[in-house]
Design a protein around this nucleic acid. Structure first.
Lengths: 197, 197
DNA sequence: CCTACCGATCGGTAGG
DNA sequence: CCTACCGATCGGTAGG
């Protein structure tokens, strides 16, 4: 479960509104005056609650990064078939995105505006996260459950297909988070070709 | 084959350099002065060749859009198995990306900075393009070649997984454009699960 | 949370 | 392709 950190409510409102604007217009095209305007205060007043525009982006990106790690943590400590574990990973990952599509959008599309040393830390976390999926695929190969020509390629393909969900997912839409994950895992595991029997 | 249009060479240089900068820093964070600096001229001189910053973005985005349509045009006029046609589509699409990964990156990540009426036109083209893939999947269902629960979802998943290639593809890397397409199509058609025989 | 303000930089134009 | 310049806007600070 996520930590409940002591974040002042006003700061949370600022981040929430910034998330919306970063998603809509991008980080660089979002001005502090525009953000302040949404909150009906003056731009200068924002700086009582936050240090800088950069700090807001960092906060959004690393919060989502933590969510991704927390979601899959401990999911692999059991003796299920690897295919089932992979489906659980996918489900966990999709849920992080559907729980907060706007923050996920910022995470996926605006991270490159992070400044050092945050940028390097971010990239390292992302690589570590991909490694968790890679390990799972390699476990499946080892156990002769999976046939995969190029596991690294396959991980990238899998995560790419999941990570674009935020561009079209709408909370009230026709597919639930679980259905999305199920569909994804099914295609990924079995393909779309009808199997001759 | 692509049209050879009469674009003055200086304009092409500007667009090429802009493509690199838009990819690296994003459209909004790229300044005309920064662009001019790369070309070792003054910012004001750019406007002898281009109308505005927006115009450059439009040119990049619609050129790639045209490339995508041209690549798959006529690919479906034959009696092959749908699976083979799909593989040809995927190959064509991947090639557009690998032929110009920087422009593809701008296309995928910066299109939202297009202004009206370009934005609407862009969105319409993208939808039309997805429709071509959707039609192909539905042909496969009809012919009982494919089993797909939700074709629209499946198209999005397929294109998402391809469209992220530009983030890691390097022209001198270990995978050719054809190998990437082959891997992708194979996973998509057959899945990664070992088939019991 | 505000007023008042900073230096820097933005896209773009006039005129040559 | 340049110099010179425009009004607008940027992120952020001082001081209350």
């Amino acid at each position: 479960m996520p930590d409940i950190k002591n974040i002042p409510p006003r700061k949370m409102q600022i981040e929430k509104e910034a998330t919306k604007l970063f998603e809509k217009n991008g980080f660089s095209a979002t001005s502090m005056r525009g953000l302040a305007n949404e909150l009906r205060i003056e731009a200068a007043s924002l700086y009582s609650h936050i240090k800088s525009k950069d700090e807001i982006l960092q906060s959004i990106c690393f919060k989502i990064a933590d969510n991704f790690f927390n979601a899959i943590d401990g999911l692999s400590n059991n003796a299920q078939a690897t295919a089932n574990k992979l489906e659980a990973y996918i489900k966990a990952h999709v849920e992080v995105i559907t729980n907060n599509p706007s923050a996920a959008a910022v995470f996926f599309s605006e991270w490159r505006h992070l400044t050092e040393p945050s940028l390097s830390r971010f990239l390292k976390m992302r690589q570590e996260y991909e490694k968790r999926f890679l390990d799972l695929l390699e476990e499946g190969i080892e156990k002769k459950e999976f046939t995969i020509a190029d596991p690294k390629f396959t991980v990238r393909m899998l995560l790419s297909s999941i990570n674009w969900i935020h561009t079209w997912y709408s909370p009230g839409g026709d597919l639930t988070s679980e259905e999305i994950a199920k569909n994804l895992a099914d295609i990924f595991l079995n393909g779309i070709k009808m199997q001759p029997r």
